[in-house]
C-alpha cells in the first residue's frame, strides 16, 4: 500500500509512504514499489523495502503433523514450539477436534521458551482424517496456535 503526493512543483519535494502488513510476511522479505511519473527521461523509478519479520512463536518443523501408518503401529510425531521473545511464555492449554483419533502430550524442553507437542494415533478404524490442535498461550500477541493434523491409517 502506498500514499503519495500527486503533484510536486519545480524545485519542490514530495513524499511517498509505503506500508507493509507484517502479519502477512514471514522471514526475510524484499518488496518493490514503482513510481510512475511524467518525467520523460525516467518514467518509472523502483523503490525497495527490505527486512525480516520474526514470528512470535516458531513451529519446527512446521504448523502441521502427519500421522501415517498401519493401524496400531502409526509412528508418533512431534513439533517444537519456540518462543522468540525474551520474556518467557506459558502454554495454558491444548484442545483438539480429533479425540477419536489422537492423543497428545506437552513437554517442556526449555521452560518458558521451547515446548514439544507430541501426537499419537489411537484410531480404531482405518481411514483418513484431518483436524486441528489449538494451543493456547499467555502471549497476548499470539494467544493461540493452530496445528493441523493429518492422519492416514491403513490395514496393512
Amino acid at each position: 500500500m502506498a500514499r503519495y503526493d500527486r503533484v510536486i512543483p519545480p524545485g519542490g519535494m514530495g513524499n511517498i509512504t509505503v506500508a507493509i502488513d507484517s502479519g502477512k510476511v514471514r522471514g526475510d522479505f524484499r518488496k518493490k514499489a514503482i513510481i510512475w511519473s511524467n518525467d520523460l527521461q525516467r518514467m518509472s523509478v523502483a523503490l525497495y523495502l527490505e527486512g525480516e519479520v520474526i514470528p512470535h512463536i516458531s513451529l519446527d518443523p512446521g504448523g502441521y503433523l502427519s500421522l501415517l501408518g498401519v493401524r496400531g503401529k502409526v509412528p508418533k510425531e512431534h513439533l517444537d514450539m519456540i518462543n522468540n521473545h525474551k520474556n518467557p511464555m506459558k502454554i495454558i492449554g491444548v484442545d483438539g477436534d480429533l479425540r477419536d483419533h489422537i492423543i497428545w502430550h506437552l513437554e517442556e524442553i526449555k521452560p518458558g521458551y521451547v515446548y514439544r507437542l507430541g501426537v499419537e494415533d489411537i484410531s480404531e478404524k482405518v481411514g483418513d482424517y484431518t483436524g486441528h490442535l489449538y494451543v493456547r498461550t499467555d502471549n497476548p500477541l499470539k494467544p493461540e496456535l493452530v496445528i493441523i493434523i493429518n492422519g492416514h491409517v491403513s490395514e496393512k
Binding site: 511517498i16 502479519g23 527490505e50
Partner: peptide
C-alpha cells in the same frame, strides 16, 4: 531507493516515507 527495516515481530506496522525531488 532502498530502505532496510530492523527485524520486527509479526503484526508490527512497517512503514517508510521516501522523499522525491523535482
Amino acid at each position: 531507493t532502498t530502505h532496510a527495516f530492523p527485524p520486527v515481530f509479526e503484526g508490527e506496522k512497517l512503514s517508510h516515507t521516501f522523499t522525491i525531488l523535482n
